[in-house]
Amino acid sequence: MELLERFIVAAGRAGARVVRCLDRTALVDYIARHAGGTVLLPDFAAGRRLQLAEALRQCGCEVVTEHFRAGAAQASAGVTGANFALADTGTVVLDSTDEALRLASTLPQRHFVVLDPRKILADGLAAVGPLRALHRRQSPDFIAFITGPSRTADIERVLTIGVHGPGELHILLLEGISDDPLES
């Protein structure tokens, strides 16, 4: 199976919603329709390239781009990119060293991830190279593997989604943004 298909199946199995977006307009429209309130939009390469802040505002979204700590608890959604992804587990990998990226991807109920399908790698072992490269680039650093929404089974082993992290993970596939694992 192709990496992309494997990724879509595995991410779906982990509870993520994977959406193939035809173009930038479709991607922005999807976020606007599903955000459900204030959107935290930190600074990241794909976001800049797609001019997401302007586009989302034009769709009527309330977009916050700084001072997340004060507003994060009330925000409904966060939007980030991804450095790369893993097909076998449906994981997106995000260098979250920048605190704004961490807050946007941990506190709100919904997390939207913009991913160029060319960044999908086979598995955790294939990820070692890019992971090592990220570590070499900067220090200190915080790199997050994210697989599906936040979950628990701590009460009677019943799987329940959305404990302390996002209850929804939307992975938006859009070609032609970047194939560089060093940027998100």
Binding site: A14, T91, S139, D141, F142, A144, F145, I146, T147, P149
Partner: peptide
């Protein structure tokens, strides 16, 4: 197959 989160932390971010 993998937990929801694996966080690699190096140094005070």
């Amino acid at each position: 197959a993998l937990t929801s989160y694996v966080s690699w932390i190096r140094g005070p971010v």
